[in-house]
Design a protein around this nucleic acid. Structure first.
Lengths: 349, 349
DNA sequence: TTGTATGCGTTATCAA
DNA sequence: TTGATAACGCATACAA
């Protein structure tokens, strides 16, 4: 129905018998003084006409979009859950979030970035795997603030800050945990294509080995080098039968694949092999055996990221209105580490 | 760096020594005739100044945003994968996609919808579970075209069309398949809270029972009524030991939970119980035993939806430019059924 | 083939 | 406390 033109401030102003400026003032609850009567008049007129503000016009006039971008390598697993939380957090602070997935394709990445800048997003949140150096410099040069999360490469110096899950520490903890559970040989099942986010885990894994005495046999596997079908055999050949071997995996999905291939091969989990993942996704909790993992405080990570960004954008007022204490970020360009917490399950008991 | 004001068409025009209209014409490759020379001049000027079009201004002037909304009940599993595909498809057709998750909360739904309408989206894609009647009517009344997917309730009559996965037929096929594999008793493990999308499956399940002779024992289970921990025992009590029982599940995640609880309870899958899911997610393919499921043609579903919407928006030209055959939608307000294809795995062999 | 002028719907700056 | 009015950046009918 309704081929009527949408009502504008102008229509509302006429209906209420005031000026457009007054309408705008009422509807945006500004700091200017307004009489109760005009407020009521305007609000009634707006309701009557079904007025709905035009975001384009407002953004154009205000020279601020209240839109932020989120650039991810993909949509599944951790990425999707983080996106969902970021969206909630954005709305909580009165922002609109545009989520894009680069599919790990640099052509796509460049195109999406261009789209984001054309939309004049007020700020950009970006996963370390989702942005190249060229793109990052383009954004900075454009004057758009960028905040990284899960970024461990040199690009982070271009950002206003970085919010990282402490996967390093998680891997340290995992090895220590596996050792406590009786493991005397260790494997890391990783994913080269995840670059720095993989290397962080490797560092943690090594540190864990060091802390547990130093000289247990250990080896690295990568999903790129060993087909899933060969995984169980590969692990069995390289580990003793007497004591359980611990397998630290890149994430829950790798752990899931690893554990299922082991079981398929007839190896007992957790008797012969113990498995640990990261992210504590649904699949970890509902597998049998349940997969030991690390819980991610999504809300905390998202809130931290957003408050940092808002502070940079000079929106402290907004934070305080939300009852949040004014956020004092770490050193500009610094890094915040979000701790992950171990969730023990049958796969490592 | 760069606290310069962003370059505008005006700046480009001055730099190139032409008018803003010419700049706009060149940059939008319109149907108007343009001399090679001015095209080059304008493009060089734009590149030199790092000009980037302002989407707000363009949308405002054009009275069209090239933005469409996608309203989902959540972000995980099928929803997330569909969102990712819709985003790709949107970009392919030159549109921007704003994805929102209602989290199955009607307050959230209303707020998000309002945001979408404020942004003057050209159209709205909406999951059947993500929109109430009031909201749907508000959208229609607003004049914004809406297209549903996976919607089986009466709301679909408010839409320009509906694109549904044929889960009914999938369930029919599943029961027939399980029967062929030797099952002589059947269960449907569903999810009441998914309303119509659950009922479609139930209808299919019943039809499958009818087709396979009619009088095999069968029963319904719902995730709301039976705790996952009790599931295995519940199923065992209600099925004979002599022949395998088939469990058709709402989706792969339910199948995953079901299968793992059965294995945990010491029941053989697929010997004692055979399990089938829907959606063919990663978890189905990489479980052990692999879970028989139904593959979803995401790209097809997304493309079909988009072309339907674009046709409604009068953008046939855009479709043809993309080399697509002009889409002739089914009856306006009609329903398209997307077939799912069985993927056999060990869980039902 | 190119330029002029106007409109798009808000917000913000003044002045009243 | 409220009202004119000038931006905001782009697209487009119409004129040249």
């Amino acid at each position: 129905m309704a081929e009527y033109r949408q009502a504008t401030v102008f229509d509302v102003a006429k209906e209420a018998g005031v000026s457009t400026a007054t309408v705008s003032n009422v509807l945006n609850r500004r700091d200017v003084p307004l009489s109760e009567k005009t407020i009521r008049k305007v609000e009634e007129a707006a309701a009557k006409l079904g007025y709905r503000r035009n975001v384009m016009a407002a953004s154009l006039s205000r020279r601020k979009t209240y839109e932020v971008g989120l650039l991810l390598p993909g949509f599944v697993g951790y990425y999707g859950l983080f996106a969902q939380q970021m969206e909630r957090t954005a709305h909580k602070y009165g922002y609109h979030l545009s989520v894009f997935s680069t599919d790990m394709d640099s052509k796509v990445e460049r195109r999406l970035l261009e789209k984001l800048l054309e939309r004049r997003v007020d700020g950009l949140f970006c996963h370390g795997l989702a942005m190249s150096g060229d793109s990052a410099r383009k954004v900075v040069n454009d004057g758009t603030p960028i905040l990284f999360f899960n970024c461990w490469n040199e690009l982070k110096h271009l950002a206003i800050g970085t919010v990282n899950l402490n996967v390093y520490q998680a891997c340290v903890d995992a090895v220590v945990h596996l050792h406590e559970q009786g493991c005397r040989s260790f494997f890391y099942y990783g994913n080269k294509r995840a670059f720095a986010t993989n290397e962080q885990r490797i560092h943690g894994f090594r540190e864990g080995l060091r802390l547990t005495g130093g000289k247990h046999p250990a080896d690295m596997i990568d999903v790129e080098d060993i087909a899933a079908d060969d995984l169980a055999e590969w692990l069995a050949e390289r580990s003793e039968d007497a004591t359980p071997a611990g397998v630290m995996c890149f994430d829950d999905w790798k752990a899931f694949v690893c554990q299922n291939r082991l079981i398929e091969g007839g190896y007992d989990v957790p008797g012969r092999f113990k498995v640990v993942g990261i992210n504590n996704e649904f699949v970890a909790g509902h597998s049998y055996p349940g997969i030991t993992s690390f819980n991610v405080p999504y809300e905390h990570q998202a809130d931290m990221s957003f408050r940092w960004m808002l502070t940079h954008l000079g929106e402290q007022a907004k934070l305080e209105a939300k009852g949040e204490r004014p956020f004092s970020p770490p050193v500009a360009g610094g890094e915040v580490k979000i701790p992950l917490t171990l969730v023990e399950r049958l796969s490592s008991r």
